[in-house]
Amino acid sequence: MNTQIVADRELAAASLATMWKIRRFEEAVEDLYGRGLMHGTMHLSIGQEAVPTGACLALNKDDYITSTHRGHGHCIAKGADMERMMAELLAKETGYCRGRGGSMHIADTETGNLGANGIVAGGIPIATGAALSAKMRGTKQVAVSFHGDGAMGEGAWHEGVVLAAMWQLPVVFLCENNLYGMSMSSEKAFNLDQLSDRAKGYGIPGVTVDGNDVQAVYDATKEAVDRARAGGGPTFIEAKTYRWRGHSKSDKNLYRTRDEIDEWRGKDPIPHFEALALAAGGLTQADIDAVRDNVRTELRSAVQRANAAPDATADDLLSAVYAR
């Protein structure tokens, strides 16, 4: 029996803080973008916060993750610094990529985050490779590949999973099924009752969980990670959740209904978690308020400091291409 997160004061507060950080970070990004203070494109994971929160709780600091275009949540949950993330999005020299990558390319190697990715499914074989490396180097590290449902249409998904299964690598393929890959519904796309049904065909265990429930995601990830560390090979996890916002700024939401969006907004993972924590006695209302207020303060100062940082410089663009 795993730890009941909501009943454990420390874990409950940490999990709630992670979800709030993701939510507030992305709300701030949306606001800055809307006011023309942020450039480029962005993909928000508001509504999906429980997945990275639960999954990363099952990981050690030196375990690896690979992430996606919708990666702010993975990055924060694995332990990244919001100020450096914000600085990156604001094209500052102090950003994680020195302003060269932006939202879709943040990596934080200190916390094992090998990077968001602009290429759908790009991170999947990379997670396989990180797991191969851990195995060859004889460490006990595990790699988790966060990816979307849409990524399961790519050849890279198939090839990454096939290699991992053959070599029984310590990797977890964690699909955030938010029901759509851009406008394509995963139900229409894949002819499966649940995406985890696919795992059997690859010779690995597969499970589907409620992606808006931190505990459910944690339990599934913990089991998969323990098996991987013990040499039991890869696992596929489908976490069902929902993206509240459009795919990106170009989205007119023509492929889904207002009712559907509202229905899922009613399944907001944050108040759901708060209610469970209150009921289980892990957190008091005062604790809950304190977590929310602390995150707000932390985020506000992260935005302020990021804003004050120097802009990315073009000085050494040419010499930055190759490693020395």
């Binding site: 990156e88 094209a91 302003g99 060269r100 073009a314 663009l317 291409v321």
Partner: peptide, 16 residues
């Protein structure tokens, strides 16, 4: 274009 991947920062992108 410079022999580099296109950077994100608007000033850098323009300079590329």
């Amino acid at each position: 274009g410079l022999d580099i991947p296109i950077p994100y920062a608007p000033k850098l992108e323009r300079a590329s």
